[in-house]
Structures are given as structure tokens and as C-alpha cells.
């Protein structure tokens, strides 16, 4: 019964998401909001402003530098967390 209920909820949530996806603009549509709002600015200004030919790098490392900095911090935190949870006995016997 419980599993049936969770299956029902999952299916309903999936249907809801699919219903929402119907309204999406077509794939690669140049007139969709994402392509008309911020993308042209980065595509046009990346080379003159940063000297980097790759817009992905300039957005990742420069325009969205905070984001990438905390991505790096998240990776660092993950490493420290695994160390704290698993690492045992530095030199001394258990």
C-alpha cells in the first residue's frame, strides 16, 4: 500500500513536470528569453572585455567567479568531510 502510494505520487509529480515542460520554448530557439536577455551580452562582450575566446570560460571564471569559487569550496568541503568521517589512526594502532 505504501509503495503503491509512493509510486502514485512519483507518477503524478512526473506528469506535472511533463505538463510544465510543454510550455518550454523549442530547443535552440533564438527568440527564447534566455537567448535574448543575457546571452547576447556575454557572447558579444567576452572577447573585447576579457580577451578569452571561450565564452564558457569567461562566464565560469570571471562573470560568475563567486559561483566557481564556492564550487571549489564545496569540493574542498567534500574532501574534508570524507577525511573526517572515514580517516582513522594517524600512525597509532587501533
Amino acid at each position: 500500500m505504501n509503495r503503491l502510494l509512493s509510486l502514485l505520487i512519483t507518477a503524478l509529480a512526473g506528469l506535472l513536470l511533463l505538463y510544465g515542460a510543454v510550455e518550454f520554448p523549442p530547443w535552440g530557439d533564438p527568440r527564447q528569453p534566455a537567448s535574448t536577455h543575457v546571452s547576447p551580452r556575454y557572447i558579444e562582450k567576452t572577447l573585447p572585455e576579457t580577451g578569452v575566446p571561450n565564452a564558457v570560460t569567461s562566464v565560469l571564471a570571471d562573470y560568475r567567479g563567486y559561483d566557481t569559487m564556492f564550487e571549489t569550496s564545496v569540493i574542498f568541503t567534500a574532501g574534508v568531510a570524507v577525511m573526517m568521517l572515514l580517516r582513522r589512526s594517524n600512525g597509532k594502532k587501533r
Partner: peptide
């Protein structure tokens, strides 16, 4: 402009070092 270029190189170096060390550390611990 080129200062921004070299700044990006430096921070990518930081990302590379951290990712490399953390991957190895997690692998050895696991």
C-alpha cells in the same frame, strides 16, 4: 583586459589543484 585573462588562468590553476588533491584523497580514503 589581459589582466582579466591572466586572473582566470590563476584561478583555474587553483581549481585544478583542489580538484586533483580532493579526488585522490577521497579515493584513497574510500
Amino acid at each position: 583586459i589581459m589582466a582579466r585573462y591572466y586572473g582566470m588562468v590563476l584561478i583555474e590553476l587553483g581549481v585544478e589543484i583542489t580538484v586533483m588533491a580532493v579526488m585522490v584523497s577521497i579515493f584513497l580514503d574510500l
